[in-house]
């Protein structure tokens, strides 16, 4: 991306972040972009640098190299920052003796907002009945809602949420999924980290996968799923051993993936059917494999090989 584009880019642009904690590198060239109108999922194992990256974006942690820009500006140069980025880093980070409303009120006052805006976001996240109780008594789900309310306070064009699904009941999860989608539909840039793959698969349009302090993938969800599915075929058969020997002889790679299923790669489905018929191997089903986000994630983080949006579907 050229410097001109970077300077004016809406959303979040993270470029080449490097940071060490004592000797160990925490961030090692982390780069990605969060664009408006899209929900971007942020995945990665513990220690991959997700939370550190979010803290760097918010100007909380310093880096040795690289930059994180909000609509082209570093966070610490923003006036009334919560009107530019709303963030939920840690839902439990609140004073237990303060009411949920009090918690939002000081935040609002810090941005020159008033109590009316506080009551609006309380309503928006469905916390009206509990808002005047001490936050120390809130369930994790209620704290998540309070944290999301805080992120929405400044009506920001960018929303950044770290693990917002944690501790939510099923109703809450369904609500949040729709809520995040609606934020993107309104044209906001949304960055969500989660370790709940299914939630992420249903919610995010775009995916950034972190590993060893870098983004090992930064691509559209659909492209990643398609690439991970590749030409693999799932074969259901009671004669797994026969099928395997026939297909290997034809040059395929075969892996047993269930009690009576094997996954075949290296051969198209019609060729597999022909070979099995020719060898008189019984089978009940041949289907194209559709990868889940879990497959994508495991493959990426296991191999830790870079995968870029610029080369979707490229063989690795």
């Amino acid at each position: 991306m050229s410097p001109l584009q970077t300077a004016n880019a809406p959303g979040i642009v993270v470029a080449g972040l490097r940071k060490r904690y004592r000797a160990a590198p925490a961030l090692d060239g982390m780069s990605f972009t969060v664009r408006p109108g899209v929900v971007t999922g942020f995945l990665g194992p513990n220690g991959a640098g997700k939370s550190t990256t979010m803290r760097v974006i918010l100007g909380l942690d310093a880096v040795e190299e690289g930059s994180a820009l909000i609509n082209g500006r570093p966070y610490r140069r923003l006036r009334r920052p919560l009107t530019h980025v709303g963030a939920l880093l840690d839902a439990s980070a609140l004073h237990p003796g303060r009411s949920g409303r009090g918690h939002l009120l000081w935040l609002a006052h810090s941005q020159g907002l008033d109590a009316r805006r506080v009551d609006q976001v309380i309503e928006q996240v469905g916390l009206a009945t509990a808002a005047r109780r001490k936050a120390g008594g809130y369930s994790l789900g209620m704290r998540q809602r309070l944290g999301i309310a805080a992120a929405l306070l400044g009506d920001p064009p960018i929303v950044m949420l770290d693990e917002p699904f944690n501790g939510m009941d099923p109703d809450g999860i369904i609500w949040l999924r729709g809520f995040l989608r609606s934020l993107a539909t309104q044209g906001r840039a949304v960055l969500v980290s989660s370790h709940l793959m299914s939630e992420m698969q249903d919610t995010a349009d775009h995916l950034v996968v972190a590993g060893h302090g870098r983004a090992i993938a930064d691509a559209a969800m659909a492209d990643l799923i398609a690439a991970a599915s590749r030409d693999r075929v799932v074969l259901r058969t009671t004669a797994g051993a026969d099928a395997t020997s026939v297909l290997i002889r034809a040059g395929a790679t075969v892996a047993a993936t269930g009690r009576d299923t094997v996954t075949v790669s290296g051969l198209p489905a019609n060729r597999i059917v022909a070979l099995l018929n020719a060898g008189a191997v019984p089978f009940s089903e041949v289907s194209a494999h559709r990868a889940t986000l879990e497959d994508v994630y495991l493959e990426l983080t296991r191999e830790a090989v870079e995968f870029h949006a610029a080369t979707p579907g490229a063989p690795r």
């Binding site: 100007g59 920052p81 919560l82 880093l89 840690d90 004073h95 237990p96 810090s110």
Partner: peptide
Amino acid sequence: TAEYRHRMIRLTLAASPG
């Protein structure tokens, strides 16, 4: 110190980067 104990300091500094 309550800001640190309850990890609120990050929210405080995100709201007030100065």
